[in-house]
Design a protein around this nucleic acid. Sequence first.
DNA 1: TCCATGTTACGAAGCTTATC
DNA 2: GATAAGCTTCGTAACATGGA
Length: 709
Amino acid sequence: MTSSYANVSSSKARQRVSIACVPCRRKRTRCDGGQPICGVCFSKGLSCEYAERENKRKPPSQRLVDALRARIKILETQLKDYQGQSLDNDISSLQASEEDSWSDSSDHEAVQDNDSAHRDPVKDITELVGRLNVGEDGELRYYGSPSNFHLLHGFMKNKTSQPVEEVRYRASQACYQLGYDADAPVELQQHLLDIFWKWQNSWQYIVHQTAFLTEFNAGIRGRYCTPLLLSAVLAIAARYSDRSEVRSDPLDSNTAGDRFAQQAKMMLHYEIEASTTSTVQAATLIALREFAVNKEASAWVHMGVATRIAYNLGLNLDCYHWVQRGQISTTEEEVRKVAWWGCYLVDKLTNIGLGRPSTIQEHDITIPKPSLLPEIEFEHWQHDLKNETFNEPNFSRMISNNHYVCELFGIISTPLDRLYAPKSNMSRQQKGALVASTDVKLTEFQSNLPSFLRLPNSARNAALPHICQLHLQYQVAVILLHRPFVETRNSKHKSGSSPDLSIQKHMEICRASAIAISNILRTYRLHYSLRRIVISSVHCTFTASTIHLYDTTSSDPAIRNAASRHFQVCISSLREMETCWAWSSRALRAIQLLAKEWVTRVEEGHETRPEIAAISKMLDRVVGSHLRPNTNGQPSQGAVISQQFGTIRTPPVGFPDPDILAHSWPLDPEIPVDASEIPSLEDESFWNSALSLSQLDQYFDPYHSGLLG
DNA sequence: TCCATGTTACGAAGCTTATC
DNA sequence: GATAAGCTTCGTAACATGGA
């Protein structure tokens, strides 16, 4: 483990490794903790692996104890209710569970294709789950039982289907004729690929690096490095680059990657007819890129295309059986895993970012998570923004990180869908129970993270960027889970009426998570700058901003002052993210409009709400007064960037220029904010005049929004 | 069968970790 | 810093194997 390296030079060397490998643990022999293979295993030629498991050494945190207490309370209430129910209900529930077990037992048999020599027609026709079949293009495709195609066990020839090569040729011809071909010098492609692996693919693990690069370096545009996928990769990577060649307008950073994206979208249009795994990867990257340029509707549609094709290819299903039969290679199997879980991750991020129900359902997935490929998992991650070398080796751990973030979405996805469903038939009590049980799972998830995926205790040491993203997403999940239960300060629903956690507790949990997000952003910026932070950070920052903005109206001066400081962190972060992600401008605009709306309502009511007015002034300073809402209505999407925002400033890759710092925040929380920049926010007398904010309360009122029936 | 050598199993000491 | 629980690994016994 890293800790074994950390004290190599210290006076008192560590006597024992924190975690011994599996063979050493089994034999109870001394393990040197060497990665990826320990000294003992190396000398004996043994297969060395480190099991990721729950860390039982630590006592349970107060947060977990609270969550468990709330869960027990809920269960006790449910037990009482259950005891009062009639025998009929018991019988019907028993019948339901019997039906469930029947469906469970038949599922796995159906997915695992049987040897055709022993086929049973009755079994075939009664199967609930379909099967994968190989098409004439060599791609696995999934057919569910209702389609009847699942009854075919062999290759399914189809004369009308388009060969992949022909479709790709037509796509390239179309791009050429329309002037969409965007050929880039190899050196530029290499530069963009380096950025892609380091900053993009390490978080959203969509592309199998080895398979892609093997073909790319050999000049082959075949199965794993297709022209479409390459264009999509370059299109998204260009957002992280400051080189003018990648822009269609050298002075406008928001045009970075335009030509590659145009080409990729045109190719995708053709390739849908003969889609492959790489088409899913490309469509997912195009969706991300569309978010980058604030084309939210297009991004949503492209993400839908990616998931549809993924289901069509059966990427959600375990294809081990086909590997055993020699019908697909182990590389192909791994590429499918990476593509599926990459698509899954972006789909979940998209759903949460836009507040829409999940496209991918957990019960559809049988494919295992990507393998822990040593060349990726144990690659030494070093950023290129600073002439600084780490004191100890930093294994990327990006595949483990991917496993855990997918697990996080597995925990949170369904509860959020149910909680935020427009037509939910759940009672308030049931929603409370759902929140309590999910909260326990989330807390356990965080406590059980392996040491290499935890955040360091001190801000002087930074976790790797993708590990920071995992923690940002965790905190967002916590906020979204509890936010509907943050009741208003003058709500009719008093704290005693809550069946689970107290109302105050929900707010405290949201606040702690919002503060954690601000702190992660500060540490991230200190070590990496925000120039190459990934796009999903925009929504994380936006979510935290809503909580901080709410807290600026707290009657507690300590909470108010801390909230204003953390709010500035979020706003300044969003401002810096604009260079890479125009979606950030949208978040800033939303926050500004929200604050201004509250000010307008306050002014109409002839009330004084100086704290919100101050926040609004700050937004004007940081975001720019040109972002004022158009009184004639909403500006068009396209006009927002080019006309209202003007030319977006382009700080160099690296650390913020002095101009940005002038709008930024003090990294030391003890240092007060610049009074000239944000006037009066730290002034006690200023805050003492604050009144309660009905508009703010209404925004967070779950009853007002219809969340809690 | 005896002996030397290597391997495996496991009790227990004490080191590590996380919280308060 | 105190505390407690969990984990690593030392040290030893039991067992396995092969050669004399």
